[in-house]
Amino acid sequence: MTLALKTEGLACAFPVGKRLIGPPRALLHAVHSTDLRVHTGETLGIVGESGCGKSTLARMLVGLQPPTGGRIEIEGAALDRADPAAFGRRIQYVFQDPVSSLNPRKTIRQILEVPLRHLHGMGRAARAARIDEIFAAVNLRPEFLDRYPHEFSGGQAQRIGIARALAAAARILILDEPVSALDVSVQAQVLNLLADLKAEFGLTYIFISHDLAVVEAVSDRIAVLYFGAVVEEGPATRVFATPRHPYTRLLADSAPQVGRPLGGEGAGELPDPLDPPPGCAFAGRCARATERCTTQTPRLRALEEDHLAACHHPL
């Protein structure tokens, strides 16, 4: 299998307390040095709670957020940020809030024409034909093309957002919480559509969500993000079934589930990102933590062939 996307040491830090001249007061490390590998045709799920850096990571991958360190390779070639259109043709993004990602003053046709014209330089007739094709692919009726975004429900608007990403003809899609703004009955429709499109066009997905069950249902592999770093990575069938990192176990046990008693033992919150603790960021909430955990940062290492965890005392 070839690599669709690869990151090496990808990191992002935001300056906090900017001063007019001189360095900022502090740096907030949203994403620590991250190595990811995504194979062509694969779906990599990324789960994590709010503030874990998953959206920053996604925005870096599509060039909306300049990384402060590391590099991104797409289909074997390093991405340079000089040409924004080059990003657009290779990798696209589907936004969390479908309605606010569509310009309220443009018709759907105008929205879909932009990538065709500016990324691919298509003529008018070619554009119209391609838009009809894409619209059929996302199961929307062609008469919707001349309406405005506010006339659509969340699920329909998200299909339009997906159609726009398809119009760019990128083979890699970053899906940032694509269904979390939708109702459950509509969520299933959109997830099934994504699966169909993947099979039809041979797409590669990076699927970001906070909903463990959704990620598990769509992914081949899953990476668990905590406090800006990957703490566990492995096949979707095993990450939540047999977690190796205590944080993944906590996540899996916390998900509300029919036929399971209430969890919620063990309090604890995220550490302060401006004053990160030394060692493992999860040590303060972890029952297995030892002195080593509070001094030495664990590295992500392979526990089995394809199952990695960043823990000194894996489960």
Partner: peptide, 24 residues
């Protein structure tokens, strides 16, 4: 019945979901 069926459950593995067609 269909609402329960269309919500994925943890531990179910990769699968196609039972979507409800249409909109409320």
């Amino acid at each position: 019945a269909r609402l329960i069926a269309c919500v994925p459950e943890l531990g179910g593995g990769r699968r196609r979901l039972e979507a409800i067609p249409g909109l409320p």
